[in-house]
Design a protein around this nucleic acid. Structure first.
Lengths: 213, 213
DNA sequence: CGCGTCTTTGATGCAAGTCAATCGCCGTGG
DNA sequence: CCACGGCGATTGACTTGCATCAAAGACGCG
């Protein structure tokens, strides 16, 4: 299992963190935690798919992040006020989640600067991603956001590239802040810009055309 | 000068950080840094007002944060990849900015866990604020976002409370992701919910009415 | 008092959410 | 093997919220 969090961390620290970890297993749709609930662990997705979201009035929901195997989440709760979740967490597929004890994590933060540094890097990445999302929401249309997503996720290389979405389209729609219908319309609009969609498989024929709009 | 960043930090650390700091002064409208530029300091607003924003096509801009006296910004750049700014920074009023040398800051991060902890707390707050913004953008209408802002910023206490906006309405509009016209309309809509606006002074007559919508 | 800047108000257009119906895909069971 | 049922995706029609453009009004400052 690759996990960016442990990249530059001293092996003993990583070992101490992981050896006390518990693993839980969840069905698709399971709620992992709720906004306002106390959180006592840092979580790592070993397998599956998790989304973190806020809920508003009348059942409306806004996704704040989607995490796949190797991703860490819940870091915010263990560091900030009250150790309380700022959002809901839900498994979107059958998932395995490792729980790293919060107290141990805090202790290692104080003892091992390399771990503290890794956590700060992680937080900065999150911050940057969130800034991206906010700026895209405010500056781009739905079509443009989808085009951007495709460009950022398609493999390098020239001309016709093809790749697979890592999750259902409705999940992607949530991540981009769109209704599923809007995502669908965006795809069909992008067809004339050289994007072919077959199930979860995307083919991009002309990256430059995508960049333009 | 109060500054949340130095709250729980050892006095010697704070002193070392501050004693090497340079102070720069700026006119309203001055650009402090541009997206993609190298950043070599952590910045503290001593005085004035700074906004951090991304710019999109055709001169459109999206505010990512607005900082007043005591606030710290630029923390992301000194920690993450390339030490490069992810956004533009601009003074909105005549401002004094303290620059804390990045190398020294990094050094203190490694040496003093209390400082590292303070920085992580700061990052988590930022993250949380940004999550708030994103969720509000996606879940609430303009009227509701403005109502929320008022509720979060008006003084405690019952019934008719009044307070002053800390900046121009157009700045608030940017912070909330609205066109200035939309903010204006929101205020005039909220009049019927007991909000009176005179210049920068806001009077709220019924908090409960605001909470409802 | 007069000018420039910020704010408000009105009219208009477009982007995207909503609701509803259809389609396609896939797994199940007859 | 085919018919059925369920779920996700698509499409269409409609509605709404907000940006935009333009013009008038208010405020602060010299």
């Amino acid at each position: 299992m690759k996990c960016q969090l442990f990249g530059g961390v001293r092996p003993e620290t990583a070992a101490r963190l992981l050896d006390g970890a518990l693993v839980s297993s969840h069905e698709a749709g399971d709620i992992l935690f709720r906004e306002g609930e106390g959180i006592d662990s840092l979580m790592v997705v070993l397998n599956g798919l998790v989304r973190v979201y806020r809920s508003g009035r009348e059942g409306r929901e806004a996704d704040l992040g989607v995490f796949t195997a190797g991703d860490v989440f819940g870091e915010c709760a263990i560091l900030s006020r009250g150790r309380v979740a700022g959002a809901h967490g839900q498994a979107l597929e059958p998932s395995l989640i490792a729980h790293i004890d919060m107290h141990r994590a805090r202790q290692m933060l104080a003892e091992d600067p390399s771990f503290a540094s890794a956590v700060m890097t992680l937080l900065c990445q999150r911050l940057h991603d969130l800034q991206d999302s906010l700026a895209e929401d405010r500056l781009l249309t739905a079509h443009q956001r989808v085009a951007h997503y495709l460009l950022r996720h398609c493999p390098e290389g020239q001309a016709p590239v093809s790749f697979r979405l890592p999750f259902q389209k409705s999940v992607l729609a949530g991540k981009l802040g769109l209704a599923p219908e809007a995502l669908s319309r965006a795809f069909s609009h992008l067809r004339q810009r050289g994007v072919v969609v077959r199930g979860r498989v995307i083919e991009v024929h002309d990256k430059d055309a995508l960049r333009e709009a």
